[in-house]
Amino acid sequence: MFEISAVARVKHFAANTAGRDFAVGDIHGHFTRLQAALDAARFTPSVDRLFSVGDLIDRGPECRAALDWLDKPWFHAVCGNHDDYVVHFDTCAVDSWIFNGGLWFTHLSLPEQKTFAATFAELPIAIEVETAQGLIGIVHADCPFPSWAQLRNELQSPKSSQRLMQVQNRCLWSRSRLEQRETQGVAGLRALVVGHSPIPVPVRLGNVIHIDTAGWRPAEGYFTLLNLETLEPAP
C-alpha cells in the first residue's frame, strides 16, 4: 500500500458573484510589475480574484514576496515546475534549478527554505473555477488527458505514487500541445488556462488558452490578465 500526501491536488472555486476573476501567466519574482498590471485593470481586491498558472519564483528580483502574495485572500495559484523545485529543494536537480534562476533560494537560511517548501507543498496541481458560462480549468503547463474529469480523477485518486508523479510532471512540464499546435482541446471545460511557455501574445488552441506573455521579461514581455468570464485579456 503506497502513501500519498493528503494535500488537495485539485482546488475548486465557486463562481464570483461580486466581482471579476482573472488568470495571469508566469510571475517569476516580478510582483511589482504584476501589481502595476492589476492597477491598470482596476483590480479591486475586495471583490476580484486573481488565479496564477504558477511559477511564482526564480529569475526575478522579488521571489521572497511570493509568500506574502500567497497570504492574500484573493490570490490563488497552482504549482508550476519552478515552484516544484522549492517543494523538493533537498532532492531536486539543483544545478538545473540554479541555471534556471534558483540561485536566490541558496541565499535563504535553512528555516526560511523549509518555510517556502512547506507553503509551496500546499499548492494544488489544478484549479477549477465556476463561471456563468461554464467551468474554467487552470494548470501550469497542460492537461495530459482528453477530459478534465480524467485529470481530476488521476490527481485525486491515483493508482500509485509513480502514476501520480507521471501525471503531475506532465501538468507541470509539457509543451507538446503548443509545439504541435494541437487543437483537440479538453472536454468538460469551457476553457483550460495554462502558462509555462513564453509567447509574444496569448494563443488559443481549441479551448486551451496559453497566457505566459513573459511579464517577467521587463524589456520585451508583459502580463496578460485573462478575464475568466469573457476569456478576453484585460485592456
Rank of each mutant, 00 (worst) to 15 (best):
L178F: 15
S160F: 02
A234E: 14
V10R: 12
G25E: 12
D21Q: 12
R175V: 01
A37C: 01
W69I: 10
R49F: 09
L67V: 01
L110T: 15
K72L: 15
R152M: 01
T131K: 10
F120L: 14
T17E: 07
V47Y: 00
M1F: 03
V24W: 02
V47S: 11
Q168P: 05
G215P: 10
A121P: 04
A6L: 09
I127D: 02
W216K: 10
K114A: 13
F120N: 13
P233Y: 10
F2I: 07
S96V: 03
V47H: 08
L56Q: 13
T32Q: 13
W173P: 09
P61E: 06
D21P: 01
A6T: 12
Y85M: 08
P45F: 02
W74V: 04
L225K: 08
K11I: 04
R204I: 08
E232G: 00
T131Y: 03
A8Y: 00
Q150C: 06
A219N: 11
F99N: 10
A219V: 02
A191D: 01
D68C: 00
V78S: 06
R9L: 14
H107M: 05
F223M: 08
T44P: 00
V47E: 06
D212Q: 00
Q180P: 00
P144L: 10
G54K: 07
T183N: 11
V139D: 07
I125F: 04
A149R: 09
V193F: 10
G188D: 04
C92G: 03
T183V: 13
V203F: 09
F116W: 11
E229N: 14
S174C: 05
S161I: 06
